[in-house]
């Protein structure tokens, strides 16, 4: 099945080399970019180090291991986040069953109390663990939540402008994304407020090929309003490690799986 996809992709790629290139719609580009940045492999694992720097240069560190499993490519996903640092959150687990249609299911495991807490769906544009990244930056934004327009095309990039369908639910008026033509990896996103000012920039600082899959290994969010920024570094990245669906259940909240422990 996998080979079939690769084959189709290759055929498509060759097909798009010919003049038909311009025919690719903005929606299609966004869909490809979404798959490239959030659905690499069938599952994956990474060790993440977030360095949060505030406007006065004070630093805070978050370290966690993230496990991901795709239920369907481009569809529902499961995430398991096992915290290592700082010490007050050590061994805490944050688990998400992401639903493309409908609210995500989210749990938090507090080891000190042996408490499995189910948490209410929240605004996805709130800070993830106190960093400048939003939940949505970590797990992806629904493709259907914005209208997409191809505003520029360079030799290497598509530039897509996205306007929210429901502006009341988000803090931005629009955002522009620079997507690499060669592998559909988004390299930069600029968020613009209602005054037309860019106030937030998300960038892939480093993209490497891992097991043949283009992967962001270093990224940064800058909040131009507050002057704060967060840099995420990803190490120990592995794809297709055969994560079982059962890992994303209460059992493994109370007993972290081997994949998360080392």
């Amino acid at each position: 099945m996998k080979r079939f996809f690769v084959l189709t992709a290759a055929v498509l790629l060759f097909a798009t080399q010919v003049p038909a290139e311009a025919a690719m719609s903005a929606g299609e580009i966004v869909h490809r970019a979404n798959l490239a940045s959030y659905y690499g492999g069938d599952d994956g694992k990474a060790k993440v180090k977030m360095t949060i720097t505030d406007s006065q240069g004070r630093k805070r560190i978050r370290e966690f291991i993230i496990l991901r499993r795709d239920e369907t490519d481009g569809g529902d996903q499961k995430f398991y986040v096992y915290f290592r640092k700082p010490s007050d959150v050590r061994k805490m687990v944050f688990m998400v069953h992401k639903h493309v249609n409908g609210d995500d299911d989210r749990w938090l495991y507090l080891p000190k109390l042996d408490l499995v807490k189910r948490i209410a769906a929240s605004d996805k544009r709130t800070s993830f663990v106190g960093s400048n990244f939003f939940y949505e930056d970590v797990s992806g934004r629904g493709e259907n939540e914005d209208t997409h327009k191809l505003v520029q095309e360079t030799d290497d990039h598509y530039v897509i402008e996205n306007v929210p369908k429901d502006p009341a639910t988000v803090e931005f008026a629009s955002y522009k994304v620079w997507i690499r033509k060669k592998d559909f990896m988004p390299e930069k996103a600029e968020y613009t407020d209602k005054q037309g000012r860019v106030y937030r920039v998300v960038e892939a600082l480093e993209i490497k090929e891992i097991q043949g899959i283009p992967t962001v290994t270093k990224s940064r969010v800058r909040d131009l309003n507050s002057g704060g920024e967060t840099v995420s570094e990803f190490t120990g990245i592995r794809y297709n490690i055969g994560l079982k669906g059962s890992i994303f259940t209460e059992r493994y909240l109370r007993r972290p799986p081997r994949e998360a422990r080392r």
């Binding site: 000190k112 042996d114 059992r251 007993r255």
Partner: peptide
């Protein structure tokens, strides 16, 4: 885990 389908925790522990 003595078996694939079983977890055991023995000793002093917090339970909820």
């Amino acid at each position: 885990s003595p078996f694939e389908w079983m977890d055991v925790k023995a000793g002093r522990q917090v339970l909820t």
